[in-house]
């Protein structure tokens, strides 16, 4: 059975600024308790475009069965982190920089399921192609 992973940013916020505190809650559902081996939650950025991809992890936490009372990793969890000054979210033509909260659930038999919840850091305007052509 595929677990249902819920990820929510506090107040439904989508746009943050450098130095803001990001608060996020996540919860696992729809799967038996003993199916889950570990959970990892991270706040990260990655590039997207034509070339090699780059990725930076700003915040990371991992929870395993052994460290949790009763061994139930499905409970609601909250993570909180202060966002850095860079890199800012950017929607360019050749490259885009995206921020997200990523929750990865490790199941038995080596399977894992990932959910990403995007957000924006900063307010750099998106580049449109006409603008690029004019600048050239």
């Amino acid at each position: 059975m595929e677990p249902l992973i819920s990820v929510a940013l506090r107040d439904g916020k989508r746009v943050y600024h450098p130095g803001d505190t990001l608060t996020c809650e996540y919860q696992i559902d729809g799967v038996a308790r003993d199916e889950i081996q570990a959970i990892e939650a991270s706040v990260l950025w990655h590039t997207e475009g034509k070339g090699d991809e780059d990725l930076g992890v700003h915040y990371f936490e991992r929870h395993t069965v052994g460290e949790v009372n009763g061994g139930d990793l499905r409970a609601l969890r909250r993570l909180e982190t202060r966002l850095p000054n860079s890199p800012l979210s950017y929607l360019g033509v050749v490259v885009k920089i995206r921020w997200c909260v990523r929750v990865r659930v490790f199941l038995r038999r080596g399977k894992d399921v990932v959910v990403q919840h995007p957000f924006q850091l900063g307010d750099v305007p998106a580049v449109v192609l006409e603008q690029v052509e004019q600048e050239e």
């Binding site: 992973i5 819920s6 929510a8 919860q27 997207e48 991809e53 995206r98 959910v115 990403q116 995007p118």
Partner: peptide
């Protein structure tokens, strides 16, 4: 709670990206 999946393509994504 709003959730999102890794498989989903963001609206501003380019499906030919690496």
């Amino acid at each position: 709670m709003e959730s999102s999946s890794c498989a989903m393509l963001p609206a501003d994504a380019n499906p030919f990206a690496t």
